[in-house]
Amino acid sequence: MSTVEHSGAGSGALVGPGGGSTRDPVRTVVRGIGELLITAGLVVLLFVVYEVYVTDIMSAAKQRDATAVLDQQWEQSTPEAERERTENYNRPEGEGIAKMYIPAFGADYAFTILQGTTEKTLEIGPGRYLDSGEPGAPGNFAVAGHRVGKGAPFNDIDLLASCDAIVVETRFSWFVYRVLPKRDEVDSWATTKGADPRCAGTGPLGGEYSGVVGQQIVAPSDGSVILPVPGRVDLRPDKGEEVALMTLTTCHPRFSDRERLIVHAVMVKQWAKNPDRPGETPPELKETS
């Protein structure tokens, strides 16, 4: 802001021969630049507050609504549906299809996974790539999510360690995925984490999947990471030969979309829900850190 200059003594103003005030053009320019920088800084600060905090609040409300709708759909059961217990993932863009839990992030980490990955959908929560596999099925169930702002469901997925559980709940089942070994763990897996009973079924994948590891960084244009065999654009295995994978994708590094952070996990267990025990949950949900 500009200041009013007085001609009286002690005011700090310059006094000319005739007693009138004069302006130092250099000081005026410097003051103007300073004011512009302060204003720009405030604008940037407000934008960051909006992106990181305000959008989180807005997304949390939308996520609660999506979860409530999904719960209502699951509760509206028919005798035929209960008898056949078949899942329905053929939902419109933006509707919930499943729930995701990552116990290592705490008992309160839970998000409804939506159908699709449009910007509008990802403002509500993590979204399933439409061309990817389905929860618990052979293939690659791929899910995208924001890392900063808009609920930031994948803010900390870089902290996931090999063997960490990713639990997916559907209407009739619980599917337990575990993060695959990271690249520097593959060679020593059998004598290190591979000896941990919790990691059963989570070792390095062989054959066509030998290049798939727990975490990688790729370019935003690399869509091969969500293929049935990640990274293999030349390969489409028969359904009976596909491994049941889950892939999480998000921007990298934080506050940037220059690259993509990828986490690959393999399904190790399926727990069918018992209609006589509606509150029963798989033991993996208790693996909180």
Rank of each mutant, 00 (worst) to 15 (best):
D71H: 13
A144K: 02
A68G: 07
A144L: 03
D164R: 06
K120R: 10
A137G: 04
A9E: 08
R232S: 13
I157M: 06
H6P: 01
I262G: 10
R183T: 14
V225T: 15
G133E: 01
N155R: 15
F105G: 09
V213M: 03
R27A: 15
L235P: 00
K269V: 09
R91L: 08
K193W: 10
P181Y: 10
P79Y: 02
A13D: 00
R171W: 08
G223V: 14
S2C: 12
V179E: 02
D257M: 15
S2R: 11
A161L: 08
E82C: 10
A98F: 14
T28N: 12
A107C: 05
R27Y: 15
E242V: 14
T192K: 10
F154I: 08
T118Y: 07
A81M: 09
R183M: 08
H252W: 10
Y101E: 00
A272W: 11
L205M: 07
G203I: 03
T191R: 04
V43Y: 00
V179K: 01
I38D: 01
P126K: 07
L122H: 01
F141H: 00
L160V: 13
G151K: 07
Y101L: 05
E75M: 13
Q115E: 09
N155P: 01
P25Q: 09
M58F: 08
L160W: 06
L114C: 06
G32P: 12
F47D: 00
Y177S: 02
G145R: 05
A195E: 07
V229C: 06
A165R: 01
G194F: 05
I57N: 00
G279H: 06
K182Y: 11
A137W: 03
E87H: 09
I217W: 08
N88F: 08
V52N: 00
G151H: 09
P237S: 04
P138E: 04
V218D: 05
S289C: 07
T28I: 15
D257P: 03
V218T: 14
L205T: 04
V43H: 00
A272P: 04
G203E: 01
T247H: 05
R31T: 14
L248Q: 02
V263P: 02
L159W: 04
Q215E: 04
E208K: 09
A60V: 10
W174A: 13
G223T: 13
T86I: 13
V243L: 11
N90Y: 05
S77D: 10
P278L: 12
R31C: 14
T191L: 06
E134V: 03
A107N: 07
S7I: 14
R23M: 14
V48Q: 01
R260N: 12
T250L: 12
F172L: 04
G106F: 10
W271G: 09
G203T: 07
V268P: 06
R183H: 08
T86N: 01
F154D: 02
P153F: 11
P230L: 08
G207R: 06
E35M: 15
V168N: 06
D156L: 12
G34C: 09
A137E: 06
T247G: 11
E80S: 13
P228H: 02
A190I: 14
T249P: 06
A272M: 12
P253A: 11
V29N: 05
I157S: 05
F255H: 03
D65I: 14
E82D: 06
C199W: 06
L37W: 12
K273M: 12
G125P: 00
P126I: 07
Q76P: 02
V218Y: 09
